[in-house]
Structure formats: C-alpha cells, structure tokens
Design a protein around this nucleic acid. Structure first.
Lengths: 218, 218
DNA sequence: AATAAAATTTAGGTTTACCTAAAAATTATA
DNA sequence: TATAATTTTTAGGTAAACCTAAATTTTATT
C-alpha cells in the first residue's frame, strides 16, 4: 500500500500527539502540522477510508493498528536518518530534524534495513528518543525531567529536546550532552533555576527553561 | 530559489538528453519522463519563466546556464547517493538507481557537502558516470564501447549501463565489473558477439547486446 | 436549560502536475 | 509546392493538498 508524503506526515503527527494525549483533536493536529482545521478534516476522511484512523465526525480520533504500524515505520526512518546524520556525517543533534524530515519519505524498505544494519541497529536517536526496530518495538527508558529529579543524586542525561530555539548553544557551553553524568545540588524556587554539579567541574547554575528540556536516568 | 521535485526531474532529464543530442524535443522529453507531450509543453513554460530553459514554441529547446547549474546539482546528488548506497550500504550497482532517484530531491546543501566529504569526494558513481564536483565540474574520461575497441589490446572496464534488464546477472557470471582488465580477441560480424579474454581466465563469448553496454578505457 | 463560545465540518476556491482530444504549426513526401 | 504526416500546442478536465468563509455541532457558561 502506498502513502503520500502528506499522508505520512499526518500519520506521524497523529502518532506523536497520541503518544502524549491519547486522543487527537482536529485543531491540535492542525496546529502541529501548520495546516488549517479544514485541511485536517479532509485528510482525516482520506485516512479513514484507508483504515489508518478511527474517526467519527466532530469527535477526537486515533490511529488504527495499521495506522500505528505505518507511523512507527516513518518514525523509524526519521530517527535512523538522524542517527546517520550525526554519527556518520558529523552534524550536531540540533541540526538534523529538518533534513531527516525529508529523508524519512524515501520509500525503499531494503534501504532502511541496510541503513539500520550499517549503523549497528541503534536503539536511540541523537535526541535520546527510541528508534523502533523492524517490528515497531521501542526500547522504552524512563526520561525524567531534570527539574523533577531527586536532589544530590547522580543522574545521566539521556535525552535533549530542543524547541527550535538556541538551547544547544547553552548546552554546548556547559558541555552537557547525552551521557553526561551530573547531579542537582539545589533548586531555586524563585525562578526555577537549578545548581548542578558535573564531574570535575565547579557547580553551575542553569535556568528552569533549559532544565525542562534535559531528561535523565536516575 | 526553490524547485519542485517535478521541476528537478524535468531539468535533469533535459540535461541528459541534451548531453547526447544537443537540443531537446518535446516528444523526446515526454518519452524519457513517461509523460505526455502536453504536460511537457506546460512545464516548459514554467521553466522558461524561471529562466531555466531557452524555449520558443514549436522549436527544440535547451537548458540555460542556470538550468545547467541546477541540473548538475541534481546529478551530483543522485550520483553521490548511488555511491553511498553501493559503497556504504552494500547494494549492487544495478539496484540503486530508483532509490537515488528519490534521495536526489532532499534539499540540504550542507548534507551533500558532508556526504561528499564522508565518501571521500568520489569522481565516479558505481555505473562509471562522473560525479559533478561542488562547482559542477565533471571529470571526463573517454568511455569507449567494448564493441568499438581495437582488437587484442588490453582495456579496463570503466562503465556499465544497465537498461533495466538483467544484464548484471550475466556480468556477475563473467565477473565483469568496473576495473576489470580484458581484451577483445575476435568480433563475430554475424551476430555482433565478441570473444573476450580476461586475466587468468579462458576466453569467453559475450553477445553484442551486452558488449554494447560495457564501456572501457583503452 | 438556554445561550454563548469553541471546535469542527462543509462549500467553494486555488495551485501543481498530470491527462485527453482537438487545433495549429512544422516537416516530409508525392 | 501542395498535401500528408508528424510534432507541438491549446483547451478543457482531474486529483491531491492546500486555503477562506460560512454553517453546523459540541462544549462551556450563566
């Protein structure tokens, strides 16, 4: 079965929203895609006909089992390409999203199979998000917000989510990346900033804004 | 300036036909693209408005300087991806065309720059075709059809052009690939077949059909 | 429960890239 | 060189994926 680039994008975005919110609304999806609600409704009818979504007019919707499989394939492609871009071509993790957004639509299954093998079947992409395996299975690890981690316990950074801003500059400055070991010494309730301590470095203060986007294993 | 996937395909195809025939006709282009003449005319007007082609109604046309630059960029992307697919992912040369056809439309310049560097700036793709460098420069080597090469002279295979058939099976059987050293012992005018001799192998007969698609350096 | 607000869908357009069939221009042939 | 054949263009349509504005349905509020 063939899916257009647009269909794939809709499915992928439904998958993402669903994984956070359970059910998806027309407006939420429109917002995420940068499209208008009317366009979403139209596409929804198309996806329903292809048995990719459960949808009743005026109601929230979700992916069918088939829809989920398709979404996981697209996510797998996206994240494998991100891994390739960072670990083979030397891009930094914050630069690869848009490029992978294009590459994820290349259709060859054989290509992805070989790419996966070539990369050593990685389980996580450069942002720390899990890469679905060939069967759509995800290695789930708990991603705790640095803002909610117990004080004075050593933790390891396992994910960084950039919102399109320039957080990566700050992280580079502090030399915080996936794998970094650190602990939170204090929380300043006034502005939500944290004092953190890293191996062989004097303690530093990071804003709550940044800390919110750093996830770790306790 | 942005070009759609379709526009890129038209430009690339004009480039290919042009490189053989000098000027391009509506029908020839339609044939090469699997489209109808009317569609070609329509696109031609669009490409002309964007100053990519020299075009007068009812006349043959060709790429402008700008069109040529764009074509070379697309060709560069196509061939670099082919090289990647063969030398990094282990595909065989005859399997990569269609995949590269999709990958060539990924737009990031930075990506291609890094890919090129990662691959070691190769000058030829797995079919033996030259890969344009960043400035569009091609390393030209003479590609002599095996059918037209002097008898009893050692030559080296430098290109293989598969027409979509199963020639590669035959070539694999004979163990003929780019870099193979061989000489033509005899030509049989009756059916155009050739007796060839390779290092450490007893002479073999190959059909004119196959020989036509093998190119070499004398 | 009635009404206001918000969310969603429908109706009717647009653009891109195709198409067929008919008309026009060019080229080849008698 | 007139006419036939071929090539190319024009005219008019279709499908996908978007849009705005208006209508409808659902949800929230008084």
């Amino acid at each position: 079965m063939y899916f257009s680039e647009s269909e794939e994008n809709y499915i992928k975005e439904i998958y993402h929203i669903q994984s956070v919110q359970g059910m998806v609304s027309t407006n939420a999806l429109a917002g995420a895609l940068g499209a208008r609600a009317a366009s979403v409704t139209e596409m929804l009818k198309k996806l329903q006909k292809k048995k990719l979504v459960h949808y009743k007019p005026y109601k929230n919707f979700s992916l069918t089992e088939l829809g989920n499989r398709v979404a996981l394939e697209v996510v797998r492609k996206h994240r494998l390409w991100e891994y390739f871009l960072v670990h083979k071509l030397g891009f930094s993790w914050h630069e690869v999203h848009d490029i992978a957004e294009e590459m994820e639509h290349v259709s060859s299954r054989e290509l992805i199979q070989r790419l996966d093998h070539y990369l050593g079947s990685p389980a996580f992409d450069p942002h720390g998000d899990p890469i679905p395996d060939k069967n759509g299975k995800l290695k789930i690890i708990k991603q705790n917000r640095l803002t909610e981690v117990p004080l004075r316990k050593w933790v390891i950074v396992n994910a960084l989510k950039e919102q399109g801003g320039h957080m990566h500059q700050l992280l580079k400055h502090y030399d915080i990346h996936i794998g970094t070991k650190l602990k939170v010494n204090k929380k300043f309730d006034f502005d939500g900033s944290l004092e953190i301590k890293m191996d062989k470095q004097t303690p530093a203060i990071i804003s709550g804004e940044v800390a919110k986007n750093i996830y770790c294993t306790v």
